[in-house]
Design a protein around this nucleic acid. Structure first.
Lengths: 243, 243
DNA sequence: CGAGTCTTTGAAAACACTCAAGGTAGGTGG
DNA sequence: CCACCTACCTTGAGTGTTTTCAAAGACTCG
């Protein structure tokens, strides 16, 4: 029926064999399509929130503003990821959500989601897995900020993004298209934009990875993995989830 | 019936008015009491896990080991907190869990939890809130590592812990008992133990807070809040959660 | 072509780290 | 009861990574 699968479906299908009925429910969640403009916040920090979204196309950044004006990026969302799910559940938003490019997203009401769960428990399992994976990524990010130097941090970040994009058909071990600026990288990795530039230059000169003109190109994947101590286990879990 | 309320009950009661029946179900979850020895891991990194726990007494640390031998502490758990809930849901553990002192914890089977939810939906809401709060704390921790200097990081950490402990009756704006060593602080805050020592000395000399002999004493609470830019909104949410 | 955004580089300064060493307190065994 | 051990805390000196400040080059878009 649906030959044109959504990124979320692609991602979940990689880990849970979903039946036809489940796929149908999943696609139904993508009904209310909306588009949002780059740079205009979906959710402001402190605002109490109404709806969650499934990102269909484009890149989004979740960030937290500091009183001193600096910002820390908590995570980036790519197609197939949820937006603002926690904000909805908590009825409050402790962080901002901003599209990096023009995006397309499906609005999901909590009621729809709960109903989908009731109809197809396996789908609930799959989504629970996705949410838990998001949490694992935040933890990994935290470890990077606390215990990796700037080079390893950058390498790890670019590798993780590569794996995530591969799961939705937007990347490979060769590289991927990437609309992020060096300022984005700086705010995500807890570095200054200037230092990001130096680190990127070093990685490029060492022929490990090239970040340029909106493209990330892996020149030496294995070398980069070694530099970053990158273990993708938390991303592309092989064993079955729950029952 | 229950005059002797558990820390978890105390914590949840602060934010959701729970009926007698709900309180009873909550206390029932505390049946299978177990004790664990300080320093002996409950869960090893990489191990796939069986049970979750509700911590009743003592302190626990969740950490992630790096290939280079260093470790990053993701969070500390105090009475009333869940242990290993995500590990159970994901059927895998990406981090270790170690008691800092001898602890007492109630084993909770996933089936029990799900049944409790079915019986008392409001309880599910309350626990969902607790889990989401844990996530918010990890995010706040991440922001600290990325965008706060060592002094502010330490100040923020000690303040957050104070608020958390207050919710279970183990602390106040005066201070609290704290079994952590400077090595724990170092691994949590992404600093070297030596630097932690210097930072603590500075905070003590500035008469802001004193960390000594297992006690944290706030000498100037407001000053510390200002230094850390501490906003406890994410911890002691006032508005009602969900319906 | 002018404005804005993003990238690149240099120089100096600040922050946090490593190495090295000593001090304290509590526990253990002779 | 003392010597020793271990774990934790404290301090100094020197080093190195990352930052800030300053400035300029490249690109895109209207």
């Amino acid at each position: 029926m649906n030959t044109n699968t959504s990124p979320l479906t692609q991602k979940l299908s990689a880990f849970v064999a979903l039946a036809e009925a489940e796929l149908a429910v999943l696609e139904q969640l993508h009904q209310r399509r909306r588009t949002f403009e780059a740079g205009r916040d979906l959710v402001h920090q402190g605002q109490s929130e109404q709806a969650a979204y499934i990102l269909a196309a484009g890149w989004v950044v979740s960030y937290k503003l500091q009183p001193d004006g600096s910002r820390q990026i908590v995570d980036f969302q790519i197609p197939g990821d949820f937006l603002g799910l926690r904000s909805v559940l908590l009825h409050t938003s402790d962080h901002g959500i901003e599209p990096i490019v023009d995006i397309e997203a499906a609005e999901v009401l909590v009621s729809d989601l709960l109903q989908a769960f009731a109809e197809t428990p396996r789908l609930a399992t799959a989504i629970l897995w996705a949410v838990s994976r998001d949490e694992a990524m935040v933890v990994e990010h935290l470890v990077g900020l606390g215990r990796r130097d700037a080079d390893a941090r950058m390498a790890h970040f670019l590798l993780e993004l590569g794996v995530r994009l591969s799961l939705v058909g937007m990347g490979s071990k060769k590289g991927y298209a990437c609309p992020l600026t060096q300022y984005h990288l700086a705010d995500a990795l807890g570095l200054s934009a200037i230092h990001v530039n130096r680190v990127l230059r070093k990685l490029r000169e060492d022929e490990l990875v090239t970040f340029r003109d909106g493209f990330v190109t892996f020149n030496n994947y294995e070398g980069l993995v070694k530099l970053a101590d990158f273990d993708p286990a938390y991303l592309d879990q092989k064993r079955p989830i729950l029952a």
